[in-house]
Nucleic acid binder design. Structure first.
Lengths: 220, 220
DNA sequence: CGGTTAGTTGACGCTCTTCAACGAATGTGG
DNA sequence: CCACATTCGTTGAAGAGCGTCAACTAACCG
């Protein structure tokens, strides 16, 4: 009943079989097609998710709605836990970039489960800590690095998951710039032979070249 | 023995007196003068802190060490919990901006306490969630707003805590820019009569003026 | 096969960083 | 108490980097 690969998810590490059964007992399975929202910014945060298959884009927009910032969620990652962490509403929007399969729990019941399962809470704290550090390193990046460095890093990080349907707009939100600058930069790199571009697809041909750009130029 | 204002700290909400006594039982009290480091980036993350009095600057620098990003910690806030959340080393440096008094716990014992005190773990998760959201909204800010908007927001957020000894460099790190731009911008605002500047001090005279700047210009 | 979405590219110029030089405040040791 | 070093702050000039606007082309979709 419980697939073994699920058992190995970081979220479940250290749990007893009993805890795990309880937890999965009230999980709903949710599947979506491409370009479907799990939730929107401002919705009541009454669900939390574990992504089993597919890719999800988490994005925030300014009040004026002009631009946004995004991060990607892959298989095995959790998302939408704002409610569990005491927020009434989701701060951002979650949208599937591909067909997805996810587990969903009710926020209130999850909070109760956490009180009864300290091990799970501590794991969750660790996962959130990792995410916090990631966000803070992104702040540092935005404040110090140039667009092409950030874009190179983003590509290197994501290029393993082959062929995500990322538009120029998506990439711009991932690395904090505009779709125009992304388009120009990618084109330049394609002409240098480091990438192969397509509509909503992208293959990295030379990781070393991008890695060299990602690092600040060594003055040595 | 346990001061009542301490009891009301968000970190301790919902704990039994017994839990609280246990927790405070192995806390060390640490006091520092101005400009003293609690820990440096890369140190073994073996302590976690609750700030009782004073102000602390948490800062990260790039590998090349050129610039940095910072956030401020005030009385009642926690900091240095990277170890509790599973990191071996501190990702940043914590330095006192004023004379400080803080409680310090051993990371390993705290993790054990968390396993025995789910209520505390859940509270911690909530606090970390708030910090995560703050970091993510900062990412959005850096990606979309201009320097003067970010600076205005930073001043509005911090101006209640009167007269922090923040240098131009500190302010620059808080809002992701250079000390030169901060200096110029503050000067401009002082000449407009919105601020009173001093060496390492700063008073906001017109919050409305700053608030107007903080919002993106309404095209309506 | 029209309508829509995604991508490209040029031109323009604003914002902000960078470098350099100087002035003012603070702390320190004789 | 004063000369000194040090830290902090200011300001000008120059131009790199990147956002913005506009116009156009190419791919996708029912």
């Amino acid at each position: 009943m419980i697939p073994s690969h699920l058992r190995q998810n970081p979220l479940f590490q250290g749990l007893t079989g009993c805890d795990l059964t309880l937890l999965l007992g009230y999980a709903h399975e949710k599947t979506t097609k491409r370009a479907t929202a799990f939730f929107h910014a401002g919705d009541t945060a009454d669900r939390c998710f574990l992504l089993l298959e597919g890719h999800v884009k988490l994005s925030q927009t300014t009040p004026s709605g002009a631009q946004g910032a995004a991060r990607l969620i892959g298989a095995g990652d959790i998302f939408g836990w704002a409610g569990v962490m005491g927020q009434a509403r989701y701060p951002g929007t979650a949208e599937s970039l591909a067909a997805c399969r996810a587990l969903a729990w009710d926020t209130g019941r999850m909070r109760q489960t956490l009180l009864a399962t300290p091990r799970l809470t501590l794991t969750l704290l660790t996962l959130m800590g990792a995410r916090l550090r990631e966000a803070e390193s992104r702040v540092l990046d935005l404040a110090t690095a140039r667009v092409d460095q950030r874009l190179a890093r983003t590509l290197l990080r994501q290029s393993s998951a082959a062929a995500l349907p990322l538009t120029r707009q998506d990439l711009a939100e991932l690395c904090g710039t505009t779709l125009y600058t992304v388009s120009r930069t990618l084109r330049r790199w394609e002409q240098a032979g480091w990438l192969r571009l397509g509509r909503g697809s992208l293959r990295v041909l030379s990781r070393p070249a991008l890695a060299a750009l990602a690092e600040p130029p060594d003055a040595s």
